[in-house]
Amino acid sequence: MTLKVVGAGIGRTGTFSLKHALERLGFGPCHHMIEVLGNMAEQLPLWQSAVAGQPDWDRIYRGYHSAVDWPTARFYRELHTVYPDAKFILGYRSPQSWAESFSQTIYMALSKIGKAPAEQHDWLCMVTELITQNGIPPGLDVAGLEQAYIAHVEGVKGSIPPEQLLVFEAKDGWEPLCEFLDLPVPDEPYPRTNDRAEFWEHMKGGA
């Protein structure tokens, strides 16, 4: 199946809300890291291979019309080659607010692999390598995280043609997203989900 929309925004840039928004707009199902966490047996080996440089995009995205968040965001350059007609959405927030949120959620979870449930160990190792490849190795301070985030944003802007790219902040709601996708604006609030508390609930629940 050909992806129609690819999210180039990394985790903690409103990706879970964007997943719900895209599904509401008819681009579902939408792949998100939560799909990996909830279906380890099938998804994890595919992404381990992708991180090792041997992706099978057809199998990874079989059944999906769109994809956001990590692991997808790590591979935005490759996916632009594989899906040249797709539209790309770069979820954005200020570097400082992203670094603070990331350091208190994903980065914290990765720093405690040794204390994680055994069934999450291989997944967390894959995510650590994935994020390291994305320019965010373990051990960065907040200032270092901000610089890594800025580098990712600039990398996306420099790689994806402007006419195929929307830089999107969740606080802007439906209007810019629907204009970019050439769709009417739904008569309902834009999704707001996956704050820090909800993130840790997903981690505890394994889905």
Rank of each mutant, 00 (worst) to 15 (best):
64 Y>C: 10
66 S>H: 02
68 V>P: 06
70 W>E: 08
71 P>Y: 08
72 T>Q: 10
73 A>C: 08
73 A>R: 00
75 F>D: 03
76 Y>T: 01
76 Y>K: 03
77 R>E: 12
77 R>D: 11
78 E>I: 02
79 L>V: 08
81 T>V: 11
81 T>F: 04
83 Y>I: 01
88 F>Q: 14
90 L>R: 02
90 L>G: 02
91 G>W: 03
91 G>T: 07
91 G>R: 00
92 Y>S: 11
93 R>L: 13
93 R>A: 09
94 S>N: 01
95 P>F: 07
95 P>N: 10
96 Q>I: 04
96 Q>S: 09
96 Q>R: 09
98 W>E: 08
101 S>G: 01
102 F>E: 01
103 S>K: 13
104 Q>S: 14
104 Q>L: 14
105 T>P: 03
105 T>A: 13
106 I>Q: 06
106 I>S: 05
106 I>E: 06
106 I>D: 05
107 Y>P: 05
109 A>V: 07
109 A>P: 03
109 A>C: 10
110 L>F: 12
111 S>Y: 02
112 K>T: 06
112 K>L: 13
113 I>K: 11
114 G>H: 05
115 K>D: 06
118 A>S: 07
119 E>L: 13
120 Q>Y: 05
120 Q>H: 07
120 Q>E: 05
123 W>D: 12
123 W>N: 12
123 W>M: 15
124 L>Y: 02
125 C>M: 14
126 M>N: 05
127 V>I: 12
128 T>F: 09
129 E>C: 11
129 E>S: 12
133 Q>G: 14
134 N>V: 04
134 N>D: 11
135 G>A: 05
136 I>Y: 06
136 I>V: 12
138 P>W: 03
138 P>T: 00
139 G>A: 00
141 D>K: 05
142 V>Q: 15
144 G>A: 15
144 G>W: 14
148 A>H: 06
151 A>K: 04
153 V>A: 14
155 G>C: 01
155 G>V: 01
155 G>P: 00
156 V>W: 00
157 K>F: 00
157 K>P: 03
158 G>T: 13
158 G>D: 13
160 I>P: 04
160 I>L: 04
162 P>A: 14
163 E>S: 11
163 E>M: 08
167 V>K: 05
168 F>Y: 15
168 F>I: 00
169 E>P: 00
171 K>Q: 10
172 D>G: 03
175 E>T: 09
176 P>Q: 11
177 L>M: 04
178 C>K: 11
